[in-house]
Amino acid sequence: MKVDKEVGGVCPYGTCDDIHSSANCCSGTIAPENVGTTAVVAVLSSSHIVVANCGDSRALLCKGGEAIALSQDHKPERVDETRRIEAAGGCVTPWKGYRVAGLLALSRAIGDRYLKRYVIAEPDMVYLERSDEDEFLILASDGLWDVIDNESACHVARRCFASSCGDDIRLPCQRDDLASATAASTLVKLAFSKGSQDNISVVVVDLRLRQQ
């Protein structure tokens, strides 16, 4: 929310309502009114994973052989998001997918202040206790998820760790850091080879509890 305000600048009218919704509404902006981005953030402690998501970037937990989504994509066609947008006076239009006011295929984002009345920056948050079964956390933009499903992403990450450290990925090895980087790079290359045309940014985090 703080970053969204910094991107949008300071509105001399208090809020940019319909009367003052032009590009000149806010002063001190660092991006045009039709520019925005998504964000997914993970905070890790020894006991918990905390994830915040705004937009359609995604956090995926690979745990005990399963793929567990820790975030839900903020898409206009989601029933709860459609209701929120319509309650604010906006509309969701089917055009090459579903779009807010027929323009933006996201219902939440940082920036995009020309639709800020409907496209908010408030994140959804998830708090999860860590487990001995936790394997990896994958944080990625929609360029990955457009062409690779959750289960496949976890499978690729496991294969990368197995090739670097042996078949039992539950046991840490000296090449773990390289394996995380290899897994992220492999997912990027795989998404590109499958024809993804959006931003493909991927981070793979090793969550296995290390022996002291």
Rank of each mutant, 00 (worst) to 15 (best):
Y118K: 03
R113T: 02
S196N: 09
I85D: 01
V41I: 12
R113G: 01
Y98C: 04
G111P: 04
V35Q: 11
V119W: 03
G8N: 08
V41S: 11
S193E: 07
Q197K: 06
H20D: 02
P32G: 12
Q174H: 11
R113V: 00
L104M: 00
T37S: 06
V43T: 06
C62G: 10
R210W: 04
S27W: 09
I148E: 04
C160I: 05
T186C: 14
W145F: 12
G111D: 02
S141H: 14
D142V: 09
S57M: 09
D198N: 07
A52S: 09
P94Q: 03
D134F: 13
K116T: 02
V156P: 07
E151T: 12
S163D: 14
E33A: 11
A52E: 06
A101W: 04
E81K: 00
S57W: 05
Y13C: 15
D18H: 15
L144M: 08
K75Q: 01
A23P: 08
G36K: 05
P32T: 06
R58A: 06
S164F: 14
K2C: 04
V204G: 05
S164W: 14
V50D: 14
Q197I: 11
H20W: 03
V188W: 07
C154M: 05
L190H: 08
V126M: 13
C26T: 09
A184D: 02
R208H: 09
V51S: 14
M1E: 09
L115Y: 01
V92K: 00
E122M: 11
R99W: 02
V205C: 15
K63Y: 12
G89A: 05
W95F: 06
S180L: 13
D132L: 15
D4V: 00
R117I: 03
C62Y: 12
F136C: 04
V40Q: 07
A39H: 10
V202L: 07
G55L: 02
A101K: 11
L44G: 02
